[in-house]
C-alpha cells in the first residue's frame, strides 16, 4: 500500500515538472529610423519581447487556417517585402482571392487598413484574413481551440498579456505587435536624403528622384512623406469600368468608385505585380501607365494627366523607385519564423 502511494506521488511530481515554465516578459523598443515620426502604441499593446515573439509564432502558424495549410506568410513573404509575387493571392485550398497581396511595412503608422480603408486598427485587421473564405477560411474560435493545446503559446499568452490562456484578445494583439515591428526605412534613398550619404544614389537615380518629386509628374502628391503615401483614396483611371469598387464599398458613395488607398512605394522593386488587382506586371509598365494619364473615369483624380515623359525619363524614374529597396529589412532574420 505504502509503495503504491510513494509511486503515485513520484508520478504526480514528474508530471508537475513537465508543465511549461512560467515566462517573464520585458518591454522593448522598436528600432526606427530617426527621420520617422514616433509611434503611438494602442493602450495595452505596447511592444514587449514576448508579445512580439508570440505574434511572430502566430504569423507563421498554419493552425490559423481551417485545413492547416495556410498562414500569414503564405501571402506575405519577407523576401518580397511581405508580398507574394502573384497577381491575385491564393488562399485556403488554392482558392483564388480577389486582390493582390499588399506589402506589410511601416504598419505602425498606418491610420487604417485594407485597400478601401474599412478596418481602423492593426489589431482588428488580424480578424479579416482569418475569417475570409478566400484567404484562411477559418473561424477565430476554432483556431483558438487548436492553439490552446500548445503549452508554449499558452505560457506566452499568460506572460505577455496576463490572460488565463490564448483567446481572441491575445491573438489579435500579438499579431499586431509583431507586425508593428515591420519597420523599413534604410534604403539607399534614405541614406542619401536623411544621412547625407551622397554616394548612395547615382546620377540616373537622382534624375529620377527629381522627376518623381516634381510638379511635372506629381507622383509625390499622393506618394508623399517618409512613407511614400498620403493614406488617401484615389481613382487613378486604371479602368473605365471597375469590377472592384474599392472605397465605395465602405462609403457607398458613387464618387468613391475605383478609389483605393495609396500604397507605399518602399521596397516597390520587390512587390510586383502592381495595382489592387495585380494587373500591371512590371515597374516599367506602371510608369508607362502613369505616363498615359490612365483611362477615362468620372472619379479619376485630376492629377492623372498624360506626362509626356521620354524613354530616358521613364527609365530614370524606375531607377529611382528601385533605390527605395531596404535590403536590410527584407533580410531581417528577426522577421522570419523562430528557429526551434
Amino acid at each position: 500500500m505504502w509503495r503504491c502511494a510513494i509511486l503515485f506521488t513520484c508520478v504526480s511530481l514528474f508530471f508537475s515538472c513537465e508543465e511549461y515554465p512560467v515566462l517573464k516578459d520585458e518591454t522593448t523598443n522598436l528600432k526606427k529610423p530617426g527621420h520617422f515620426p514616433s509611434i503611438e502604441f494602442p493602450e495595452g499593446n505596447e511592444p514587449t519581447k514576448l508579445r512580439i515573439e508570440l505574434g511572430r509564432m502566430l504569423f507563421y502558424d498554419n493552425r490559423l487556417s481551417a485545413d492547416n495549410s495556410t498562414n500569414c506568410s503564405s501571402c506575405h513573404v519577407l523576401s518580397s517585402a511581405f508580398t507574394d509575387g502573384k497577381k491575385i493571392s491564393a488562399g485556403l485550398s488554392s482558392r483564388s482571392g480577389k486582390r493582390n497581396a499588399p506589402t506589410l511595412t511601416n504598419l505602425a503608422w498606418m491610420p487604417y487598413f485594407m485597400m478601401e480603408g474599412g478596418v481602423p486598427t492593426l489589431e482588428l485587421q488580424a480578424l479579416a484574413p482569418l475569417h475570409d473564405s478566400l484567404e484562411m477560411g477559418f473561424n477565430m474560435m476554432l483556431a483558438i481551440d487548436k492553439l490552446r493545446k500548445d503549452e508554449k503559446l499558452v505560457a506566452l499568452a499568460r506572460a505577455a498579456y496576463q490572460r488565463d490562456t490564448i483567446d481572441p484578445y491575445v491573438v489579435t494583439r500579438a499579431l499586431a505587435a509583431f507586425q508593428r515591428s515591420f519597420i523599413s526605412g534604410d534604403s539607399r534613398y534614405d541614406r542619401f536624403t536623411f544621412q547625407d550619404m551622397k554616394n548612395q544614389l547615382n546620377e540616373q537615380e537622382i534624375l529620377g528622384m527629381n522627376l518623381f518629386f516634381s510638379d511635372r509628374t506629381n507622383c509625390s502628391t499622393c506618394h508623399s512623406g517618409v512613407f511614400f503615401s498620403d493614406f488617401g483614396f484615389h481613382n487613378i483611371g486604371l479602368y473605365e469600368f471597375y469590377t472592384d469598387n474599392g472605397r465605395e464599398r465602405v462609403t457607398y458613395k458613387l464618387e468613391d468608385i475605383g478609389k483605393f488607398k495609396t500604397p507605399t512605394l518602399r521596397n516597390v522593386e520587390l512587390t510586383a505585380p502592381y495595382m489592387h488587382d495585380g494587373s500591371i506586371a512590371t515597374l516599367e509598365e506602371v510608369v508607362e501607365f502613369y505616363n498615359s494619364g490612365g483611362h477615362p473615369h468620372a472619379n479619376r483624380d485630376s492629377l492623372m494627366q498624360p506626362l509626356a515623359l521620354n524613354e530616358t525619363e521613364k527609365k530614370d524614374i524606375v531607377a529611382f523607385l528601385k533605390s527605395l529597396t531596404d535590403w536590410n529589412f527584407v533580410q531581417n532574420k528577426a522577421l522570419l519564423p523562430l528557429e526551434e
Partner: peptide, 15 residues
Amino acid sequence: LSVAGSQGMFWHWNT
C-alpha cells in the same frame, strides 16, 4: 459582441 458571441454577425473587412 465578442468574437465568439457575435456568431458570424461581424464584418471583418469593413468592421
